[in-house]
């Protein structure tokens, strides 16, 4: 049962990875590309990593439990750092005078 939940989570995470990667290529400017890069770091990573943690816990023992804890810690730290990094980059872009993209009339 746990395996199926984990599989669904990982596949959902991979879907966000895919969407984010396509967005990084297809979106028109710096800020919107960063937005799609943010999706990879948050949703994609959250889902696939928690899927992995569940997958490990399928066979429960102390070592696997520790590994699962480590994975959760990774998620926590990524959730702290990734938005901050995106924020800092956007901030630097604005300060450097980069104008957001507008649709041409």
């Amino acid at each position: 049962m746990i395996i199926y939940i984990a599989g669904v989570l990982i596949i959902a995470g991979l879907f966000f990875f895919l969407v984010g990667s396509i967005g990084m290529i297809r979106l028109p400017d710096f800020y919107s590309r960063l937005h799609s890069a943010g999706i990879i770091d948050t949703m994609g990573l959250l889902l696939s990593m928690s899927g992995l943690a569940l997958l490990i816990l399928n066979e429960f023992n102390l070592g696997n439990f520790l590994s699962a804890i480590k994975i959760i810690l990774i998620i926590v730290f990524i959730f702290l750092t990734s938005p901050t990094a995106t924020h800092a980059i956007v901030d630097a872009g604005i300060r450097a005078g980069l104008k957001p993209w507008e649709k041409k009339q």
Binding site: F77, L80, T81, T84, H87, A88, D91, R95
Partner: peptide, 18 residues
């Protein structure tokens, strides 16, 4: 100099210990 960004400052101070 650019004004200090409170988000970046706070997150970095939090994370440096870890």
């Amino acid at each position: 100099w650019v004004p200090y960004d409170i988000i970046i400052n706070f997150t970095c101070r939090l994370l440096i210990h870890f």
